[in-house]
Each structure stands twice: as C-alpha cells, then as structure tokens.
Amino acid sequence: MHIPDGFISPKLYVPAYAVAIGLLAIAFRRLRRELREETIPLLAVMTALAFVLMLVAVPLPGGTSAHASGVAVLAVLFGPWIAFASCALVLLLQAMLFGAGGITTFPVNALAMGFAGSLVAWSTYRLLRTWRRPVALFLAGWLSVVTAAVLVAVALGVQPLLAHRADGTPLFFPFGLEITLPAIVLPHLVVGVGEGLLTVLIVQLSERVLPRRTP
C-alpha cells in the first residue's frame, strides 16, 4: 500500500506535507505528555512489530501482494496520536531503508495509513468495545486497513486529473479512480480480515502478559 516516489504530483504532496507536519507536531506533544516510562518498552515492541508486518507481503490472486500494518494494535493500546507518531516513524524508516514508499510520498502514506488508519481504528474500538470487545477489536483492525486503502486509491486515482500534459497524458500515476479504487480496495477487504484477527490476538495477548492497558 506504500505509494512510491514519482507517483504523486507536488500539487498533492506539498499540501500533504504541511498537514502531516502540523499533525505530527500535535502527535509528538501528546506523546511527551501521555507516555510513561514503563509503557515505552511495549510501544517500542509494537512499533517494531508494525515495521516488520508492513514488510511481510502476502501474495494475492491476480499477481499482486498486500500486507498488514499493525496500526490498529498501536491505536487501541496507545491512542490515535501516539499510533500516528509511531506509524510515521515506521514509514520514514521503510522509505529510507527499503524504498518502500518514498520521501515525497511520505506525508500521503503517513496520513492514509498512520493518521486515518489509527483514528478510524481507535474510534471503532471506543464505539463498540462495550458491546462485544473481540468484535470491536476485529472491526478496528479491518477498518484501519480498508480506510487507508481507500485513501491511497483516491490519492493515486486523482493524479491524472491533477497533473497531465496538454494532450492529456498523465505526468505521474497514470490510472484513474475507476481503476485504482477496485484494484486497491478489493484486495484490502481480504487483507483487513487478517489485520482484524491480528488485532484481536495481539491486544488480548498483550493484556494477558502485561498489565491491562486498554481503556
């Protein structure tokens, strides 16, 4: 789901940088205020897990592959702001070490996977946790992936409209929304099931091993 460099026009990534830097400033302020020394090891472990999960590509029918993210686990255990900061760190390291994603596309990836993914996961969990907690955790995971996929598909699909030559030839990503939405979102409906199950498993396991953290 990481958008590589060269696929996104400056018309989108420049404003995205402005928004992402603003939100990251808020996230790091919240991190300083809310994080306690005893919770840092768990956050480090979950961030490392997200780093690895995002690099494990699952082959899918049709000659493509997708991956889980672990963002919902971070959001449920630590809240959306800390999850966003952790996810942004993961995406930055992946762009620098693996070329997974990119430097120009970093804010778009961070906003889609980190910010929107975390916010949706945390809101879903908070809304449904008193009804059936495992279902709330599963849906938090599933929706975090699907939301990020929709945003990435939209960011790519609008490129032919945003930047093209006089004859209409796209200068960046060449396929429109009618192609990107089904091509990106449909596989992630399946990947989201894995992310949902992983969220249930990891959150419940971390609570069994460590003192209860989730609200």
Partner: peptide, 25 residues
C-alpha cells in the same frame, strides 16, 4: 540484504525508544 535491512530497521526502532527512556530518566 532484505533481512539485514529489516534487522537494522528494528534495531533503529528500539534504539530510538531507548533514547526516549533515557530522556524520561
């Protein structure tokens, strides 16, 4: 190699959070 880079990435994550602990201390 890819595995080496994954290990470097994980080490960087732990290293950065280690610095956070030092700041807290």
């Amino acid at each position: 190699s890819r595995l080496t880079r994954i290990l470097v990435g994980v080490a960087l994550v732990f290293g950065l959070f280690g610095v956070l602990v030092l700041i807290f201390k």
